[in-house]
Computed example of a mutant assay.
Amino acid sequence: MMRVHGGSDAQGVPRWDFSTNANACGPCPAVAAELREADIGRYPDPGYRALRGALAAFHGVAPRRVIVAASASEFIMRITACLARAGGQRVWLPAAAYGEYAHAAHAWGLARVDDPVQADLCWLCEPASPTGAAEPQWEAVIRRDAVVVLDRAYEPLRLSGASLLRSEDADRIWQLWSPNKALGMTGVRGAYAIAPLHAQAWIDRLEQQAPAWALGAHAVVMLQAWTQAETQAWLAQSRATLRAWKAAQQDLLGAWPSLPSDANFFCMRAELDAGFLRSRGIKLRDATSFGLPGLWRLSVQPPAAQTALRDALDAAGASREPGRPKRAIPLGGTARSAKGAS
């Protein structure tokens, strides 16, 4: 299976990158400063006891329930492997979803089923990727006795709405967190999962399958900084900025229909020349690999990037729907631009 992702490619780093969902306000300055001071001359504690304690306190759980991972993708592969080795045979995942869920299932020979009731392993992501919306089969999945993993990569970047996860269900499922997106530093790899309340056997399996020193010094620093009040205050401030930018960006692209989204990204339907846009330094995410042909996923980007996108679309002569005239778009990114944000 060929992996398809946004971001850097054979042509290098896009000047205006709408293809990945990292926080466009980042990197978080406070965390970046701590990363510059990271001690790279020594091994981290292989048990990550201080880090797991900080993450546990941040989420209000026991430290034994915190599983550190080299990345969200590494955890996806590891828990799928543990499921397969325990005799699991079937997986359910949303119709349009992050490709690593299917990649891991394929690698370990799990059959994909259409009904979550038949699955041994179920995946959820909310807000969902690529749409940024809620998963319509939430109730059917969250109430399953199977291994259920909720990928919460974009919960810190939620710009509207509220999580469907109820407090009474939070201790029954796995919650996977990858803060590097919210911090705007996807080049630093590191993630963690919160185990269900009564899952010691699964915790043991996952720990046995983990490589030694899954996290390097930079990942440890990033995840510890994630729990700090200063970092969370910056994140809250960035969400306000992203709401304003999102309103302006959706206004800019208002001639093309877009899907509802609560996150810092959304999908729109359009016929676009990706090669031409890339030649102008702009990269969007073709949603075909998500199973959504004809749709493009765009992350919310700052005013300068939006101006470049508008100019490139005009230069490409991208067709608009009949009756939708070209409009002047305010790109100031101020709070007044937040009108109509979703």
Rank of each mutant, 00 (worst) to 15 (best):
M1I: 00
M2I: 01
V4A: 03
V4K: 02
V4R: 05
H5W: 06
G6K: 06
G6A: 10
V13I: 14
R15S: 12
R15L: 15
D17F: 10
F18Y: 09
S19K: 04
A22D: 13
A22N: 08
N23P: 04
G26R: 05
P27M: 06
C28Q: 09
C28H: 08
A32D: 12
A33M: 00
P44T: 08
D45E: 10
R49C: 06
L51Q: 08
L51S: 08
G53I: 13
G53S: 10
L55T: 07
A57V: 09
F58K: 08
G60I: 08
A62R: 10
P63M: 07
R65H: 10
A70I: 02
A72L: 08
E74A: 15
F75G: 02
I79M: 11
R85N: 06
A86H: 04
G87K: 02
L93P: 02
L93I: 13
L93D: 06
L93E: 14
P94M: 10
A95S: 13
A95F: 09
A96K: 05
A96R: 07
A97G: 06
E100L: 13
E100F: 15
H103K: 10
A111C: 10
A111M: 13
D115T: 01
Q118Y: 02
C122R: 09
C125V: 05
P127Q: 02
P127N: 02
P127M: 03
A134I: 02
E135G: 00
E139R: 14
A146N: 08
D151R: 00
R152T: 04
E155F: 00
E155Y: 00
L157I: 04
L159Q: 01
L159M: 03
L159T: 01
A162L: 13
L164Q: 14
L165T: 04
R166K: 14
R166G: 14
S167V: 15
D171Q: 15
R172E: 13
L176D: 06
M185E: 00
T186D: 09
G187V: 08
R189H: 14
G190K: 14
A191N: 09
A191R: 11
I194E: 11
W202T: 02
I203N: 01
R205E: 13
R205G: 00
L206K: 04
W213R: 12
A214R: 12
G216H: 10
H218A: 13
V221M: 13
M222I: 11
A225Q: 15
A225H: 13
Q228A: 13
S238R: 02
A244H: 14
A248Y: 04
Q250L: 13
Q250H: 07
L253F: 05
A255G: 09
S258Y: 12
L259V: 11
D262K: 03
C267D: 00
E271Q: 04
L272S: 01
L272H: 01
F276C: 00
L277T: 01
S279E: 12
R280E: 10
K283N: 03
L284C: 05
L284P: 02
D286A: 09
D286T: 04
S289Y: 12
F290H: 07
F290S: 02
L298M: 05
P302F: 11
A308S: 12
D311E: 15
D314T: 03
G317S: 01
E321H: 01
G323C: 07
A328I: 05
I329N: 04
P330E: 06
R336L: 14
A338G: 04
A338Y: 03
A338K: 03
G340M: 11
S342C: 10
